[in-house]
Structures are given as structure tokens and as C-alpha cells.
Design a binder for these strands. Sequence first.
DNA 1: AAAACATGCAACCGCCAGCCA
DNA 2: GTGGCTGGCGGTTGCATGTTT
Length: 305
Amino acid sequence: MGRAPCCDKANVKKGPWSPEEDAILKSYIDTHGTGGNWMALPTKAGLRRCGKSCRLRWLNYLRPDIRHGGFTDEEDNLIGTLYSQMGSRWSVIASKLPGRTDNDVKNYWNTKLKKKLLAGNIGVTPSKSDKIPTNGPTHISSTLGSLPYVSKAETHFLVISASQTENPPAVSSGLSANFHSLTSDHPTQVYCPQLIDVSEFGSSSKKDFGINVSLSQESSSISNWSSIDLDKYVSWAGNGEIYDPGALVLDTGFGAPYGLNSGGLWFPLKASEIAPPCYATMDDFLHADIKPQGVLDPGGVIGQY
DNA sequence: AAAACATGCAACCGCCAGCCA
DNA sequence: GTGGCTGGCGGTTGCATGTTT
């Protein structure tokens, strides 16, 4: 059986709301509230609109506490930071910005902020509370495939989340990593890119990382748009606890080894603390796309956060 | 001045989770 | 326990407006 439509599509109006419709909806909700039933609201209010449409119009436009346009630099930075932490969870991000709606934030991100971030005009600030005190990484959750915009500041260790926290996915394919330089003065050589075991970063009380990683490439040159294919079999292992059931770190050789785990994006406290001397600089590389190259095992959910 | 192209944003669509009968 | 309904969400579309050619 097919899904029942949420409303009688033949008898509802679609498209932009007129001022009259806005006034009717606002007046009705001001007087009666939403009644906890959006589906019934348009009939009661005398609107030829779908309940979902009424809800959206109210939440995104007519609510009295809505602010439109004019995002501040502070809001830009907060959105950038939150996006790096949780990906496109717009409703959560919007909840941190008084007066902003998820639709507004989403539109703003898609049309302006993404470009602004890529241009390096705003940063991503790791949360201090996420830091692991010794030589562990700073945690920033993110979305594999859609992240990571890397702050130029203090560098790093990218980690792409695999979305699942309870059951780390097995990756039966390799990963490809594309690094985007955003300056003309980029390094042209990557020294010793390799996968490294990061089990040493796990806390003593909890075996945070458990990985079996094979070296995929000994070296590679990299330009302003370069790719490193990690085509060896990679398995994710872990203890199945929330957070850090498994991790994978790629040492790119330019100062920003990053790790994959099911918890999110990770930065080491300082690249120098873990980086061998051969590392160049990460400063020219602000963006990386990490993608699975092949079929994932069932349960492998990379990129779907 | 007009056409083509780019941008911004409101609104829609489809999916999913939770609630309830 | 099951299935339908609803609210909520993120992705996408399409139109209006602005800019460039």
C-alpha cells in the first residue's frame, strides 16, 4: 500500500504565500495556538494550504522571534565550527543561533558561508572540552565525505566520522583523499604519506583505537588539487563503545595526519607533538574530501552521517 | 537595451522516527 | 505487536532578482 498523502493535494494551494494568507495564519495561531495538530490547522483557520506548508511558513517566516539576513561574523564562525563538528544538522546548529531557522542557516551555508570558509575568511574552532589531555587528538565530529574544512590555526589531525558509534563499520574498500590547496604557494611534494597506527593515542582506561592499517603509498607528489588513493584493505576495529571504537590515521606528510573513527574529526593537539620531522606544512591545505572507493560492508556507513 | 547567466531564498519533497489507536 | 498518522528534518527545486556580457 502506498503512503497516504499528508493532505488533499487537489484542493491545496502551493507556491508563495500571499500577505493575506500570512495574516490569516498569524492571526489564527496568535489566537488559538497551533493546537498541536498542523494537519488540522489549515481547515480550522480557513486556509487552502497543506498543514506541512503552514508549519513551515510559521516556523521559517511568521514566528515573531525570527531574524532574517545579516549574519554576524560571530554567527559565521559558530556555524562553521558547528558544521565541522556535526555536519549538516541544521536544526541543531540553528538552535544555537537565537532567531535563526534551520532553513535560513542551511541556505546561508549553501550560498555564502561555504565559499567564505573555503576562502579562509572564517575558521573552525575545536572545542576545548573535547581535547584529550595527553597526546591524544582534539575531537571534532564531522561527516566523512563532506568535511573537512581545516583551520589554518594550530594544526592537525583530521578525522572523518563514519557515523556509527556503536558498531564501527568495516571498510572493504580503500579511501581516496583529495587535498585542496587554497593558496598559490602550496607545497609540491608530500613526504612519506602513510597510514599509521594510532593506538598509542588511546587512553589507558579505554582502548580507544584499534586498527589494522597497511601502508598504501610510500610517497606522492601533491599539488593544489591532489589525490592520494588508499587502496589497500582497511579494517576498522574497536571495542564497540560509544566514541572511538576504531580509528584510522593517514599521515599525509604535510603536517596534517588525520584519523578516521566513528566518533568524528580529530585534531592532535599539535602536529609537532606527533609529527616526524619530515612533515611539511598544512597551512596551504584547507580542505580535503575523503571518499570510499568501493563497496562498503553491510553496516559500513561512511559518508552518510 | 536585451539576453544570458548567477545568486539568494522560500517552499516543496520525501524520508524517518515516534506516537497512538 | 502492528500499522497509520504526524511532526521534524535535510536535500532539492524553482522562481525572483541582480549582475554581467
